[in-house]
Design a protein around this nucleic acid. Structure first.
Lengths: 259, 259
DNA sequence: GCCGATTTGTCCGTATGTATC
DNA sequence: CGATACATACGGACAAATCGG
């Protein structure tokens, strides 16, 4: 390991994507301003048009730019105000917290090993009889208990998990120690009445409801290894998404959503 | 116009995408089952590998499939149970309702023409002084008032809007009559305490909070023409999303999110 | 552990279509 | 009408991961 900055992108399209994203965030292309044409970008970055289109497509799926057929590509980037906790891609809680400029903390509430029963199978998507770790954790942001997490992790995918590890980052353990490759996560956002556990563990003020992200996460070999319900204090919760209209002339060559 | 089914896809990648999606939804590839290899799919559909990869990428961004480097592409599709109203892409309310198997209805509450002031500018993203239509509507599903919509539409983008039109589909008018091309929408999902208007207009039962989708929508020429806040009854609301882990080996060539 | 076949991932060059100006 | 710009599609090349022998 050298002293280079972390996460050197290997792929060309990714480094171009990051370059352009940085430029947009730095204000070089405020909302409404046209970017250079694809052909110019090809020369600038010394690559083919396909590669440029891939990077631009990723920016479009992030809601940073928009392109129109005969005209060009322009920025529609609006910096967000960051008063709430913005939920992003698949990332460990600590990373998400720092991305939002908050100091993360974790309080372990419960840790046990259980077998998935019929009712739990129906809700989680794990087959009945699966052996899983059941973990309850309170997540702190700048010291305040704002998120109540309930995790089910498949034991066969992450053997050897302990309460001590669960108090830190399960993902760090799974990816670095166990070689687990996390790929896809399907998430549902809903809101529910606050449970007594929510009220007990979270600093809910006088709110009596929570925002809930229920997610099923898959590893590279296609097995679902995690089911999580994250219960958020509503005034500190924000989920952002960008959608496209498929039937319109614009059909962005968008790529994977990049956090 | 002939008798052909609506929305004949012009692009090859799109018709392949739909074919595969239909097959997966029909149960030909239950979760865990491997799809044919890209080269086989090339022969099946009579196209190049790039085109196949594009269609597969769209399926991945829909959370239907997942691919791994030397192995293949398999289904991770789990049919949803459809007890709630699932929010999808950019689509008129009536379409979304029918996609969820519900009968849509609209009740116009308010319609006026206003000028955006400072406070409203800050929240909506419209420049101060913009001339907009202000519309309040209650959306019915199977006759039940479940969604309270507040729209701001830019007058210059959709001139000639009337209460009568607003009682139907503004999008149909804007796209078909005015030639507006809708492309991108940025959305935030939050939850808020129910306002007195919510309680008055919606059938909230004993819920005292609502799920809110705030969206800014852009036309093909890059102007933001719509700001909307959709306030949903929480027990009938569900927002679904698929996320990817960028640093993992798998980097899906995913395309635009397709409803 | 090595090798070769298969499969996906990245990248390129090119051609053609179509919308905008 | 021509020039410019994005959209679609093809074919080829090589790298890297996986799996079986």
């Amino acid at each position: 390991m050298g002293t280079e900055t972390n996460k050197m992108p290997k792929a060309k399209y990714e480094s171009i994507y990051r370059d352009l994203k940085d430029q947009i965030e730095a204000g070089e292309y405020p909302s409404g301003k046209l970017l250079p044409s694809e052909n110019v970008l090809c020369e600038t970055f010394g690559c083919s048009r396909n590669t440029i289109r891939r990077a631009v497509g990723m920016l479009a799926s992030d809601g940073y730019v928009q392109s129109q057929h005969g005209k060009g590509i322009w920025s529609i980037y609006e910096p967000s105000d960051q008063t709430t906790f913005v939920v992003g891609g698949i990332e460990p809680f600590a990373e998400a917290a720092r991305r939002n400029g908050r100091e993360p903390g974790t309080r372990l509430i419960d840790f046990k090993e259980i077998t998935v029963d019929k009712e739990m199978s129906k809700r989680s998507g794990f087959p009945e009889g699966s052996e899983v770790y059941y973990i309850e954790r309170v997540r702190l942001l700048d010291g305040k208990p704002l998120i109540f997490d309930i995790n089910l992790f498949l034991k066969s995918a992450i053997p050897g998990l302990t309460p001590e590890l669960a108090a830190g980052s399960v993902y760090a353990y799974a990816e670095n120690e166990k070689g687990l490759k996390v790929t896809t996560s399907r998430r549902k956002i809903t809101a529910e009445r606050a449970s007594s556990k929510d009220k007990h563990n979270l600093d809910l003020k006088d709110y009596d409801f929570v925002c809930v992200i229920s997610s099923q996460t898959y590893s590279a070999d296609g097995t679902m290894f995690e089911y999580t319900r994250s219960r958020h204090r509503p005034d500190c919760f924000c989920f952002i998404d960008t959608a496209f209209r498929p039937d319109s002339g614009n059909r962005n060559t968008a790529l994977v959503k990049q956090a």
